[in-house]
Computed example of a mutant assay.
Amino acid sequence: MKDDTQMTYRPFETIEAGRTSRWLVTCDHATNLVPVSVNGGDLGIAPEDMARHIAWDPGAAGVAQRLAQVLNAPLTMTRFSRLVIDPNRGADDPTLVMRLYDGTVIPANRGIDDAEIERRLDAFWRPYDAELARLVTRRPDTVFVSVHSFTPRLNGRGDRPWQIGILHAADDRLARPLIDRLRREPDLCVGENEPYGGHLPGDAVDRHAIAHGVPNVLIELRNDVIATKEDQDAWADRLAPILEEALAETGL
């Protein structure tokens, strides 16, 4: 998706007014938008590739928006594709700007130099990072929930059976009771650190939650189960009370 409103462009969107709960909901890969300041708004790949999981997390923004509404939680979401620069990576991560992803070469990134990476850090990554930092510290008992989605399969790989995966690192104070509670749902296949393992050093949850002792969880939903607005709302409505139950169990 190309952004044609550069005069009003912001690299993130925050919905906060009147939302007072301790929950904070984030969506790092909310859109496949490419701002016009990046190669004229075109990364050089086909529209069908820009619609794939390589460019964003399909369905995740809709779930995050509804979940934040039900939890009365502030929400912040990116307004740039993960292929522009990935806000869920550390600033020094070698996959910060992907040149090849799941079999697709990204022409506008293939020959990227350090100066352009630094420009994208300043234009996109750092403003969103600063917004996360502000929102996490708005109250001392914040609980950090990051919403993502994953593809049912990567090219050349097997099917992924989980409808939902809960990611955590050593800090599993919220993740553990959440996983246990979700596994009591008879219709769900629940992954623990699936389809990915834990957190990468310097990723968004690590930077803004784990590093500061903030209770946290990263929720991954398989994108075919959240393909429509109705699906997204239904999952959010289902998850909100389960999250509240899991948090109550922790005593945090």
Rank of each mutant, 00 (worst) to 15 (best):
R157Q: 15
D172I: 04
A169I: 02
T8C: 10
C27M: 00
Y101D: 10
W125A: 06
V136N: 01
R120V: 11
R238N: 12
D4Y: 14
D187F: 14
D49R: 12
D49W: 09
I242E: 07
A246K: 04
G103H: 06
V145K: 05
H199E: 01
E244K: 11
N216K: 00
T250Q: 11
F144T: 00
E13N: 14
D93E: 11
R139S: 11
Q232K: 05
V36R: 15
P35I: 07
I166S: 01
R157P: 00
R89C: 09
L43M: 08
D93S: 14
C189I: 15
A17G: 11
G41I: 10
D42R: 09
P161W: 01
D237L: 09
D49A: 15
T95I: 01
L252K: 10
S81P: 07
R119E: 08
L71D: 01
K2N: 13
T20D: 14
P47Y: 03
A46T: 10
H199Y: 14
D42P: 08
R79Y: 07
L188I: 09
H208A: 06
G191Y: 03
A169L: 01
A61L: 14
G251M: 04
W235G: 06
A17H: 15
A68S: 13
P35A: 08
G90C: 03
A133C: 10
T142D: 03
R238S: 12
W125G: 03
Q6K: 09
N109W: 04
P152A: 02
V63E: 00
V217S: 03
T14A: 15
F12I: 07
Y128I: 05
G213Y: 00
A130N: 15
Q6H: 14
W235P: 06
N39A: 15
M98K: 14
L154V: 01
D159A: 15
A51M: 13
D172E: 13
F150L: 02
D141L: 01
P195L: 00
